[in-house]
C-alpha cells in the first residue's frame, strides 16, 4: 500500500494524531503517551510565567532532542485582537509559525466565536502564519475560513473536554466533501469509537488532549487512539458497504439450499 501521507502547507505528515499537552498527571506519563500516540504535532498554550516560581521546569525541556512540530494555541482569547497578540508572542518564541486560532465566545461552553476567528485568521494569514482555526462544525464557516487562507480547518466535534463525541456527523461529512484543505476534528472526542467515526467520515486528522490525558491509563489510551485513527482511516479508504433495510444472506447459492 502506498504511504498514506498528508500535508499542512508544505509540511508532510504521516501521523493523523495531533496531541495536546495539558492535564497529564506528570511529565513522564505525558512523554510516554506522546510516544505511544505516534503524534508528530503537539499543541501548547501561551501563558504568563509565574514569577514566584521561575525555577519550575518548562514543559519544553522534556521535548528537547525530539523532532516534533509545535502548534501553539490562542486559548484565553475572546477577541480577534487578543488572539493575534497571543499568536505574535507564540511566533516570537522561534519555535513555530503555526498557530491554532482558538477564540472562546462563552466561558461555560468554550464554543468558538466564528466571527472573531475569521477576523483573526485574515490578519494572521497576511502576517505569514500557518493558521489552523478551531471553529464550529459549520460547513459554511469552514469554507469561509478556507477562503481566508487557513491551512486547515478544525471543526469541533463537541465542546472542549466534554468527551461527547461527534454531535453532528452529517455536518462533518459535508465539511469534508467541500473542503480543499485538511479537516481536523478538534475538541469533544472521548473514546476510540469517536475517533474511528471521525476518520471514517473522511477527516484528515484529529486533535485530542483530555481523552488521553485524563484516561485512567493515558499511555494505553494514546496507543488505543492511534490504532483507532489507523483503523478508521483504512476503513475510509476501503469504502464501507451501504446500509440496507432488510437482511441479505452472506452465503449465496440460494438454488442449492437443502430442502
Amino acid at each position: 500500500m502506498k504511504k498514506d501521507v498528508w500535508r499542512i502547507g508544505n509540511h508532510e505528515l504521516s501521523s493523523r494524531f495531533f496531541i495536546g499537552t495539558g492535564l497529564f498527571p506528570n511529565p513522564y506519563v505525558q512523554m510516554e503517551a506522546i510516544k505511544a500516540s505516534g503524534a508528530e504535532v503537539l499543541t501548547f498554550a501561551i501563558r504568563r510565567i509565574n514569577l514566584e516560581a521561575t525555577e519550575d521546569d518548562s514543559i519544553l525541556q522534556h521535548l528537547q532532542g525530539e523532532s516534533y512540530r509545535y502548534l501553539p494555541n490562542t486559548s484565553g482569547a475572546s477577541t480577534a485582537d487578543e488572539a493575534v497578540r497571543i499568536a505574535r508572542l507564540a511566533r516570537a518564541s522561534g519555535l513555530s509559525d503555526w498557530i491554532k486560532v482558538e477564540i472562546s465566545a462563552n466561558e461555560r461552553t468554550l464554543l468558538p466565536d466564528p466571527i472573531e476567528t475569521l477576523k483573526a485568521t485574515e490578519i494572521l494569514v497576511k502576517e505569514g502564519f500557518t493558521v489552523l482555526p478551531y471553529l464550529p462544525d459549520d460547513p459554511v464557516m469552514c469554507k469561509r475560513l478556507e477562503e481566508a487562507g487557513a491551512a486547515a480547518v478544525m471543526p469541533g466535534g463537541a465542546p472542549i473536554g466534554t468527551g461527547l463525541g461527534i454531535l453532528n456527523p452529517y455536518n462533518i461529512g459535508l465539511i469534508v466533501e467541500e473542503a480543499k484543505v485538511p479537516v481536523i476534528i478538534d475538541a469533544g472526542l472521548g473514546s476510540v469509537s469517536d475517533v474511528t467515526q471521525a476518520m471514517e467520515l473522511g477527516v484528515s486528522g484529529v486533535l485530542m488532549n483530555t481523552p488521553v490525558a485524563k484516561a485512567r491509563d493515558p499511555v494505553g489510551m494514546a496507543q488505543a487512539m492511534r490504532l483507532g485513527i489507523e483503523a478508521g482511516r483504512l476503513a475510509y479508504l476501503s469504502g464501507r458497504i451501504s446500509k440496507k433495510r432488510y437482511a441479505s444472506a452472506s452465503s449465496g447459492f440460494d438454488e442449492f439450499k437443502l430442502k
Partner: peptide, 10 residues
C-alpha cells in the same frame, strides 16, 4: 512587561 512561555494545552 509581559513574560510568557509555552504551557500544556490542547
Amino acid at each position: 512587561i509581559e513574560l510568557v512561555h509555552f504551557v500544556g494545552g490542547g
